[in-house]
């Protein structure tokens, strides 16, 4: 059984169909990628998976359970975490607060807990902080934990986003163009990080990426979509040699002159 199983997923906005009958599955414990030319519907697909868009047809099964109708926060609670293409940090909060927000769905203290601070709440707060520190340590931003997120350099802001997603303690991590805006060294670190996330934390990783080098390096399996439809899937080698993929990226012979 797949960890995440997408069946004939279709999303419509009026006359536009950003996601058209897409089906594929993601194996537990793997690192897989979704690629496709600009505007192919990658982020729309991501938004469907995480509940931000409601697809009209098809089904999304996460650990065998349909998440089609669930709200984004419920999906996160089930164990699917995401990052955003354009950074969406809590800009005016500290790095620590940013990461702690990820633990929200793993804790339960409410109003009474906040006001009276019973031992259970104190223990919970302690655990939240521990997890947050672990996550920051894991991505290498522990030394910046008290800084305001917006004051960090871009690369570090990306790390905060990853750490924040990790703090939700997911089973599946969806990364939306994690390498965008990173320099070569940072990208190489990202490759290592993605592998460590899978190997050390046992989290399945699914990413959208434009940087082919990076995709080819980390992914065990690649899915290619174009115009909302899946056109290929397979290993890096297979996808690279697939004529439909080449066509999608480079165009047909006669278009090339342009």
């Amino acid at each position: 059984m797949f960890l995440l199983d997408i069946k004939d997923l279709t999303l419509r906005f009026g006359g536009i169909v950003p996601v058209n009958k897409v089906s594929f599955g993601i194996e537990e414990g793997s690192i897989e990628s979704l690629i496709g030319p600009n505007g192919a519907g990658k982020t729309s697909l991501f938004n469907c998976l995480t509940g931000f868009y409601k697809a009209q047809e098809g089904d999304i099964l996460f650990q065998g359970q349909s998440v089609m109708k669930l709200k984004p926060h419920k999906i996160t609670e089930l164990g699917m975490a995401r990052t955003f293409q354009n950074l969406r940090l809590f800009k005016n909060l500290t790095v620590m607060e940013n990461i702690m927000s990820g633990m929200h769905c793993r804790a339960s203290a409410g109003l009474a807990g906040a006001v009276f601070r019973p031992p259970s709440q104190r223990a919970e707060e302690k655990r939240i902080k521990e997890v947050a520190i672990e996550c920051m340590d894991f991505v290498g931003i522990l030394d910046k934990k008290n800084m305001i997120a917006k004051n960090l350099p871009y690369g570090d802001q990306r790390r905060v986003e990853w750490a924040r997603a990790l703090a939700t303690q997911p089973k599946l991590l969806l990364l939306d163009e994690p390498a965008a805006g990173l320099n070569y060294d940072e990208k190489m670190q990202l490759v290592e990080l993605i592998k460590r996330i899978r190997d050390e934390l046992k989290i399945t990783v699914f990413l959208i990426e434009h940087d082919m080098g990076l995709v080819m390096k980390v992914s065990e399996k690649i899915f290619v979509i174009d115009y909302g439809m899946k056109i290929a899937e397979g290993t890096a080698q297979e996808v690279q040699n697939n004529p439909r993929v080449i066509e999608a990226y480079l165009g047909k012979e006669e278009d090339k002159a342009v």
Binding site: E77, R88, L89, E97, S101, A114, Q121, E124
Partner: peptide, 21 residues
């Protein structure tokens, strides 16, 4: 508190807060 932090997150960015569960 957990509640207070959640409020701050919502104030900053609702979508991201939703994505954080």
């Amino acid at each position: 508190s957990r509640l207070g932090r959640a409020w701050k997150c919502i104030r900053e960015d609702e979508d991201a807060a939703e994505a954080m569960g």
